[in-house]
Simulated assay, not measured.
Amino acid sequence: MIGVQLAWQLKQAGLAWKPGPGDRFAIPDRDLDDEVFVLSNMTIEVHTMPEGPVIGFNGTTEWALDDVELDETLWLPREDQLRELLGGTFQALRRQASAYAVVVELLGESRTFDGETAEEAYAAALLHLLAAAGVTPEESAPPSP
């Protein structure tokens, strides 16, 4: 999973989020910086019972945070989502000694982007593509880590 800082860079570079079930996101600057939320149609939890663990299907969880504006959230795209966003430019993902490399082709030129994780390498390539597309980053400070 990419971190909040890298997700913030993607958002500032113009990456738009159309939320869907299974998407992960953070809510920075609300004392929830270390929490990762997942969009779901239903809350499902594992409960420990005397007879053993059971999976409980719950309705809506009552919580102090009733809703949050989409622009106050930070999408944490999964590896498959990042790869899909690269579209036809994506050429390869390679495992290196202690890192990953993503190869993309843009305007006939092959470029390689490294990251400690596959997600970070995909995100680095996507940041490059957003910049090449001429998307103008928003002018604001990233959330505190």
Rank of each mutant, 00 (worst) to 15 (best):
M1C: 04
G3S: 00
Q9V: 03
L10F: 06
K11V: 00
A13E: 04
L15N: 01
W17I: 03
W17C: 06
W17S: 01
K18Y: 12
K18V: 14
G20R: 15
G20Q: 14
D23F: 02
R24H: 11
R24I: 02
R24Q: 12
F25G: 00
F25E: 03
D31M: 10
E35N: 07
S40M: 12
S40N: 11
N41C: 11
N41L: 11
M42E: 15
I44W: 08
V46T: 13
V46S: 03
H47K: 13
H47M: 11
P50C: 08
P50V: 08
P50G: 05
E51A: 09
P53V: 06
I55T: 14
F57E: 08
F57H: 13
W63G: 13
V68E: 09
T73K: 05
L76S: 00
E79T: 03
E79R: 08
D80L: 11
L85N: 12
L86A: 07
L86F: 06
G87H: 06
G88F: 04
R95C: 08
Y100C: 05
V103F: 02
V103H: 10
L107Q: 15
E109C: 08
T112Q: 08
D114P: 03
G115K: 03
G115I: 03
E116N: 07
A118Q: 14
A118L: 03
E119A: 13
A121P: 05
A124C: 06
L126K: 08
L127S: 00
H128K: 10
A133W: 10
G134V: 06
T136M: 11
A141D: 07
A141L: 15
A141N: 14
P143C: 09
P143D: 06
P143S: 00
P145C: 04
